[in-house]
Amino acid sequence: MSSATDADLHLFEARVAHNAPEGTARRLTLAVDEPIDPNPGQFLQVGRSGSETYLKRPLSISDWDAARGLLELLILPVGRGTRHIASARPGEMLTLLGPLGRGFPSPDELGAAPLLVGGGIGSAPLVFLARRLAASGNPPTTFIGASDGQRLAGEKSLAGCSRRLVLATEDGSRGEIGMVTSVIWEHLDGLEGITSIAACGPAGLLEAVKILSDRLGVPAFGSFEERMACGVGACLGCAIPMAKPGDGKKYLRVCADGPVFALEEVAIS
């Protein structure tokens, strides 16, 4: 698994180049001068001045253009913190800490035929991963779902770097009707030869992906979230239960041991 080293930790300001709507979310494009080298699945602690909230917000990196230094965040404004960041205006500076955490396994480790599964805003980090996989010569098969078409995230970019993209909405407003994890089962015949699964979304989605990976006999990795304070592994606030506790240890840290875990590593709840 890829892992950040101490030297990878940066604290820097980045200018908001664009802020555009994407369904119910906002797509923020940031111009980054700092020499960062993020991996898909890693995240940033993001702060915007004038916030009523005290702590920064952990947001996954949804895309990264290393050549131009452009970083994308797909933000669903759900609370005071994310609403404040999502309304940053072009030209404004945001404060970023990162890249943080362990991301998805490398394209080599995910193999020749990776499957990506995203739910709602959880599709955000899969865009960056799909781009890496496509660049490595193994574009993924991608399934993304949401409650409705307005909540499908990253569709356009994922279409551009996936072998095949299947959309699912619970209300049927876009793509196939139903939960993405149910829709996948209807495509099982087309998934023979899949080498791994990478997923991000709510706990229910990750649980379903775990069952699917057992059925297909392939390793599965999921990106998790939890309330976070430091983001660097110091405070132990973002605990996730281990699948197999032992030696007096029951929890891992989402921020530093994750946010991406092998689904067999953790207890999904």
Partner: peptide, 27 residues
């Protein structure tokens, strides 16, 4: 001895601060 700490959620942001109940997790 090692202490496993409390179940999550362990923290919550509050006005000008935060609450924590880590449970003194340590090895």
């Amino acid at each position: 001895e090692p202490w496993p700490g409390n179940a999550p959620p362990r923290i919550v942001e509050t006005p000008s601060g935060m609450l924590n109940a880590i449970g003194l997790e340590n090895p």
